[in-house]
């Protein structure tokens, strides 16, 4: 047996187990769809695995301004939420872009963020929406912007003994566009997320498949003004996005192809938010 499994019944017990473990000794399991392949391929070799399955962190609460999602909510529960589809189509699309449905029945929102995968489809849309994460530890819960939580691929600012508890997502108009070889069970060559903050009148653009980890594109954001940017503004925004990005080539796509995708998908995503049906802006 490569590891033993612990399944604490409370957050306090989970944190105590985390604090008692030596470095690299213990891995946290939510849905397991990313951790278990890593264990199989020897990228990590924990002696103990801490399962979160008995923790009740599965809230899915809407307020007039935001969606609160418990860290252990399976992605499939999000895509089956009719209000999510209506109010945040970009987040709905991004959730559906992860793996296949059978994977999304196990994979959790919290797991996706804590694993901080360079190819996550959820990180760009949650960055564009300016999501915040609640971190649970021995001292209680602290909250910080997702952007601060994500440090680099596979690295977050979780302190020792901390667990991702919840994600708070402002309910804003948004869109998500991706390009890949197969629609399901594949990794996006490029993904673009766009959101509009009606209060500040600000646009947010984030991309994945460009830098080592999904990131905001500040130059592209600055090119857009007001609730209904013109087609010329949108073209300028897409051009800036394609130029400013530190694009890399890998086995999934070349640098020139990624820049073409970036220009096309940024423009499409911004237009999708600008031209959204009135209902989804409520």
């Amino acid at each position: 047996m490569t590891f033993t499994l612990l399944a604490p019944a409370t957050g306090e017990e989970a944190v105590a187990a985390l604090l008692a473990a030596g470095p690299g000794e213990l891995a946290v399991l939510a849905g397991g769809t990313d951790l278990l392949p890593d264990i199989d391929e020897g990228r990590t070799a924990p002696r103990r695995v801490l399962s979160l399955r008995r923790l009740p962190w599965r809230e899915l609460n809407w307020t007039s301004t935001e969606l609160e999602v418990g860290a252990l909510v399976p992605l499939a529960s999000l895509e089956r939420n009719a209000e999510l589809r209506r109010r945040m189509p970009g987040l709905f699309e991004a959730v559906g872009a992860v793996g296949g449905l059978a994977l999304r029945h196990r994979a959790t929102l919290g797991g996706n963020l804590v694993r901080a995968s360079p190819v996550s489809d959820l990180i760009p849309i949650l960055l564009a929406l300016e999501a915040r994460v609640g971190l649970y530890g021995a001292q209680g819960e602290r909250e910080l912007p997702l952007e601060e939580f994500l440090q680099s691929p596979r690295r977050t600012s979780l302190a020792p003994g901390e667990l991702l508890r919840r994600v708070r997502i402002p309910a804003r108009p948004c869109a998500f566009r991706w390009q890949r070889v197969r629609p399901a069970n594949d990794i996006s060559q490029l993904a673009v997320a766009v959101a509009y903050d009606p209060l500040g009148g600000d646009w947010r653009v984030a991309t994945a498949g460009v830098a080592p980890l999904a990131r905001r594109a500040p130059g592209a954001e600055a090119a857009l003004h007001g609730v209904a940017p013109s087609d010329a503004e949108i073209r300028a925004c897409a051009d800036v996005a394609a130029h400013e990005a530190p694009v890399r080539a890998d086995r999934r796509a070349t640098d020139p192809y990624r820049r073409l995708l970036l220009r096309a998908l940024v423009a499409r995503a911004v237009r999708a938010v600008r031209d959204r049906p009135l209902e989804s802006s409520s």
Partner: peptide
């Protein structure tokens, strides 16, 4: 595939499809 890419190992757990290659039985 045993990596969650193909769906051949799909079973239902509590009525919902899951990839049995990426699911610990104890879970």
């Amino acid at each position: 595939c045993r990596t969650g890419d193909c769906g051949a190992c799909t079973v239902l757990v509590d009525g919902r499809s899951v990839l049995s290659c990426l699911t610990l039985t104890r879970e």
